[in-house]
Amino acid sequence: MPETKNLSYAESVNAALRRALAERPETLLFGEDVGAPGGVFGVTKGLRKEFGERVFDTPISESAILGGAVGAAVFGRRPIAEIMWADFSLVAFDQLVNQAANVRYVSRGALSAPLTVRTQQGNAPGACAQHSQSLEALFAHVPGLRVCLPATHQDAYDLLLSAIWCDDPVIVIENRTLYHAGKQEVRLGGEVRPVGGAAVRRPGRDVTVLTWGALQHRVLEAADRLAADGIDAEVIDARWVRPLDLDAVLASVRRTGRLVVAHEAHTVGGVGGEVLAAVAEAGVPLRCPPVRVGTPDTRIPAAPGLAAAVIPSAEVIAEAITKSVRAQGPSSKLVHPTGFDLVPWCAGMS
């Protein structure tokens, strides 16, 4: 029975897990500190008590966690494994890239690995370089995996259920700064939707700003501020970076003629580059070269003042949006994206 509850982001995840464990007896939930302690962020609280042996603590053995999820998934379970920080998935990346992603393809569909990896990523004040990375591009690069970054309480619930219901490996990337940052009304018990699909968070006419993950809250802050200056930005939350909802992006860019992509991950090699390439390939006419906003080439320093200098702030995002919109001269024509450097009024933009 659908109902609405006032929940934190962490409680929304917990509600999705509870529903999955209740409705799908083949689900398992495991990871470090996930069972008896209820998770280092309290996300899995109460689930061990309610569902017993299907919810359990593991040793600090990410290869066993992820490989165990692959094997159990092939044999009919539907594991939901937690990797406490996305950074820690790297010690067991093999199990996702060489193992999980290949199961269905190589067996020509005879086998599948319906597993969900819940993790969280990103910088928070004081976090060290090994606890601060945004790694979605690594996962999204791998055909066979699906990747989402729920950034609202509702999506924390909805996307996780879509992931669990999906018959392929899905990586759900949460963000620890969201877990306990206030409550919102969340609709529970609705239909579980298939994976994919972007969401317009703020409709606008002047520029399309595509974003995902917790950074979108800064993007929305920037967009709200710019509204006062007469810039009407459309903010789209990609939600899924694999599969990317390109149709939604293209439809918006066709209207606005401008594209800014903002993510916390490093700009170079990031999913933002993929979006720009896809828009260019689609031949959508742009009024101005598209812009990527992300973290520059650097490791992430622990000192909050240093990290703040590299992780995109609302100011940096607002500046990029403004430049993109203001770059249009009064007599400017729509330009084809392959002709960027032929557009004089865009010279000097960076």
């Binding site: 060290c128 090994q130 320093p301 622990a302 240093l306």
Partner: peptide
């Protein structure tokens, strides 16, 4: 003046 200029922090 931090031993790593603040890049390492408490944990690294």
């Amino acid at each position: 003046t931090g031993i790593n200029g603040g890049r390492g922090g408490s944990a690294y």
